[in-house]
Every structure is written in structure tokens, then in C-alpha cells.
Design a protein around this nucleic acid. Structure first.
Lengths: 152, 152
DNA sequence: GTTTCATGTAACTTTATATGTTACATGATG
DNA sequence: CATCATGTAACATATAAAGTTACATGAAAC
């Protein structure tokens, strides 16, 4: 399976947007992310439906943040993406008749469920505002990061 | 990404083998797992290299368990598979020049690393012998499970 | 009102990876 | 030496993310 980087991608976009006033076109964001505008629209669609961002057509259109960054956690963003699978591993058969496989599944599920729960909990502890704060520290004395000066 | 079920599969095989004296041919095991003999050989190769199982060619050949089941954990088995990726999600870019992406990676990595560590720890707590014990409970009064009577 | 800009979305291609299959070489047993 | 079983390469299939193309829809500028 290819590694899913949509959460990473959409957070990157949001954090960029939070650094300067919008709106931002998909094309601008795509260039900053070194990808395609359609990919941007795709990963942003879920966030728009929930109302974390807004999109406008036509001249002066583009994407705008429409939520309180201190209230939205990484877990919320993950949920907006449609809760894609977290683990790369799973059981061969989900409801096996074989008792041997049931025993294996039981052991693995316990470990898998624990890990998933911890991951979601950790994501739930971090808000977008906290990400922004961390970014500001990294920027240090530098000027506000201009999206047009982006280097991957 | 397709979900990786090799750990699940190889544990199923090992637990079956632990129920009756061997050796077992790849074909027998493949039938029990409803898959192909080559797949069995593939997932067993790593275990053979570490010495958890042995394989013999020719008449009367096949696979045999060659380790102390109470000493080998699920984590050991996982390692024998070559430590395949545990998480289905990852960072877009691993060493980005963009500070925004660095901030995102830092936050995600913390969550990802914690979850991976917990998963590995949990797998490390369970030995193959413990799996066998759990299976015995599930079998209850029933006779020893005969691999030839296997149903997926 | 027509041109331009920007999103929305379907359809297709590409890429990565697990899994399934075929074919054949290697080596052990009877 | 015929048969059985593993070892492995090569190829095929399945699934899902990511990238791309094409075009419809709607808003703003002129």
C-alpha cells in the first residue's frame, strides 16, 4: 500500500493559510505543496463540508479559513478527511470460522486497537493554533513566512 | 494501500503447526489458509532465517517449528517479517526545507512514534505460547484441532 | 453580456505494494 | 531415477493514493 499523506498535506496547507490573510487559490497552494490544484481541492473538500474552510469561485476567489484554530484538533482534521485507515496491518480475515484464526485476531486486535486509540488521542491533544505557535518559534526572528517564497 | 496481513497470516500458520506434530508441507498449510503455497514459503522465509522454523526438502519434508514458543513474541515474528510499515499514514516529505512542513511533521511524528511504540510494546507482551493457551481455551472440550478439517 | 478566473468533479493515468500464480531449478527420500 | 518438497524468479492481479486532463458551474471584472 502506498503511504497516505493526506493528513500531512492538508495540515501543511492550513498552516500556510494561517500565516497570512487569504483567500488562496488552489493553484497557489498547489505550487507551495509541489502538487496539483485538483489534489488540493480533493483534500480540502471534507474540511469545507464541515465548515473548517470556505471556498469561493471567480475573481478574488479561493480558500479561506473559517474556524477557530484553537478549537480544531489534528484529530478533527483527520475526521474531516473521512477517517482513513491508520494502520498498515490488519487481520487476514475479519470474522473467521477457524478458531485458530480467531485466537490470532483477538491478540492482534488488542494491540491494534490500543495503538489506534493512542494515536487518535495524541492527535486530539494538538490544535491547529498550537501548530501555529510551534511554527512561529521555528521562524524565530525571521519575517512572516511568505507562501510565494515556498521551498519544499 | 492494501492492508498488510502477513503477520496475521504467519501467526495463523504457526499456531496451526503448534497444535500437532509436523512437518507440514507448504501445500497443506496453504489449503488451511486458503492461499497459495508460494505465499506460505514467502512469509515463512524470514522466520527460517532467524531459526524460528526449519524447512526440509523431499519426501517427508516440510515445515517444522524450531523455537521455544514461550520465548518468541509477536513482535519477534513481526521483526522476522522484516519490520514492514505499521502505520498507513506518513509525512508528505520526510526532510522538508519548508519550516511549515517541519512543524507539521514534528507534531505528526510525535503522535505516530508514540502509537508505533505502543503497538510494538503490546506485540512484545504476547508470546506464541500465550496464543496457544488462548486457543486451547477457545477449543474448550473439543478435540485437538485437526488442520485437515480446517474451515476459513 | 461576455470574458476571465476559480472551484467542483468525473475520468483516466501513474505509482506503490500486497497478494496470487506459473514455471523451473535444487535437493532429499524412497 | 522418479517423486516429492522447498527456493526463487518472473509475471499477473487487486487496491488505494497521487497526479493529470477535461469540462461544467458560477462569480467578478470589463
Amino acid at each position: 500500500m502506498k503511504r497516505d499523506s493526506r493528513l500531512s498535506g492538508v495540515l501543511h496547507v492550513l498552516l500556510h493559510m494561517a500565516q497570512q490573510p487569504g483567500p488562496f487559490t488552489s493553484e497557489t497552494l498547489a505550487k507551495a505543496m509541489d502538487t496539483n490544484p485538483v489534489v488540493i481541492r480533493r483534500i480540502m473538500a471534507g474540511l469545507r463540508e464541515i465548515g473548517y474552510v470556505r471556498s469561493e469561485k471567480g475573481h478574488g476567489g479561493g480558500w479561506t479559513i473559517a474556524c477557530d484554530l484553537s478549537k480544531v484538533t489534528l484529530r478533527d482534521v483527520y475526521a474531516a478527511l473521512g477517517n482513513p485507515p491508520l494502520l498498515a496491518m490488519g487481520n487476514r480475515t475479519e470474522a473467521p470460522g477457524c478458531l485458530v484464526e480467531q485466537a490470532v485476531n483477538a491478540a492482534l486486535d488488542q494491540a491494534f486497537d490500543d495503538a489506534e486509540a493512542l494515536l487518535l488521542a495524541r492527535l486530539g491533544e494538538v490544535t491547529l493554533a498550537m501548530l501555529g505557535e510551534d511554527l512561529r518559534k521555528r521562524l524565530g526572528s525571521r519575517k512572516i513566512h511568505d507562501i510565494s517564497a515556498h521551498r519544499a
